[in-house]
Amino acid sequence: MSTLIEQLKGQIIQELNLVDLQPADINPDAPLFDYDGLGLDSIDALELTVILSKYYGIKVTDPAQMKKAFFSLATLAEFIAEHQSAPVAA
């Protein structure tokens, strides 16, 4: 799980253009969509669905499912671990 979290940190920083952020700056348990956390917005949420589809082959469209999975980096990693059937080229 910790490898997955580290990998996600890199993907999120790159794909969401969080230029001034280092992987170590991201607390896996901090809320992603909160100004105390990463302060992501609705477009970033959609970008996270692209990351899931592109790197992990997981399609997510149900808003309730998204809300739960995208709470923090840790919940996102759990969600991926649960739903990933076969690894896709990362």
Binding site: E15, L16, N17, I43, D44, L46, E47, V50, S53, K54
Partner: peptide, 9 residues
């Protein structure tokens, strides 16, 4: 096919 919402906008 991986269009990006952050690009499309």
């Amino acid at each position: 096919h991986f269009p990006s919402p952050a690009v499309f906008v």
